[in-house]
Structures are given as C-alpha cells and as structure tokens.
C-alpha cells in the first residue's frame, strides 16, 4: 500500500502543467510575439486553461530566447527563423516569460507575463 501511495504521489508531482505538441490539434490558434532588444510585444498574453495554443516568436534583430521556466517551455528565435511552441496550458496563474539568451545591456528587463485563466 505504501508503495502504491508513493507511486501515486510521484505521478502527481510529475504530471505536466502543459500538454505537449504531439497531443494537440494540428492547427491551434496562433499568437505572434515579437522579440527585439529589449522587449517582447505584446508584453502580456492571455490564454485559456485547457485550450490549445501556438506561440510564434518572431525575432526582429538577433537571436533571442523565449522561456517560461515555471511551465518548462522555451524556444530560440532568430531573424528569419521563428520559434514555435504549441501546448495546452493546464494550470491557471501568472507566469513570467523572459529572454534567456544574453542580448546586451537591457537584456535583464526583457520579460513579459503569460496569464492563464
């Protein structure tokens, strides 16, 4: 019984907060986010919990990273090479997204917010 409980708890801990791409419909709605030194536009995106979505990150000037550490999501985006993340948010809340590829003085403030309702 003890073993069973432990396995159950571990599954609970490891259950993903987003569903990965292979489980998603082929054409979810797309939100485009521009990434440039030192901003994301829009700075805030609103998503519906349980609704599949694709984020396309469009770099305007150089390589940037788009990372949502709390959801384990990240992708690179370079000029002429969009980054794409397709997922279903499974957890409500406010999550910081940020550039995680150092891009100059101002990089530290290159961040935004993902709101899942």
């Amino acid at each position: 019984m003890l073993k069973l409980i432990i396995i159950f708890v571990m599954l609970g801990i490891m259950y993903p907060q987003v569903m990965q791409a292979e489980e998603l419909p082929a054409d979810p709605p797309v939100i485009t986010i521009k990434a440039g030194r030192f901003y994301f536009s829009p700075q805030q995106i609103k998503l519906k919990r349980g609704m599949p979505v694709a984020l396309e990150i469009e770099a305007t000037d150089r390589l940037h990273g788009f990372s949502v550490p709390e959801l384990g999501l990240r992708v690179d985006a370079d000029v002429g090479r969009k980054g794409r993340l397709t997922f279903t948010p499974e957890k409500s809340g406010r999550f910081i997204f940020m550039c995680d590829v150092f891009c100059g003085s101002g990089h530290e403030e290159m961040a935004g917010e993902m709101v899942v309702e």
Partner: peptide
C-alpha cells in the same frame, strides 16, 4: 551565475 536554480523566472540559474 548561481549553479543551482535560485530563481529561474529571473534568469538566476
């Protein structure tokens, strides 16, 4: 940089 995940939301890792 910190070698542990201090606060990844602020890139502190």
């Amino acid at each position: 940089r910190p070698l542990f995940d201090l606060y990844p939301q602020w890139d502190w890792y």
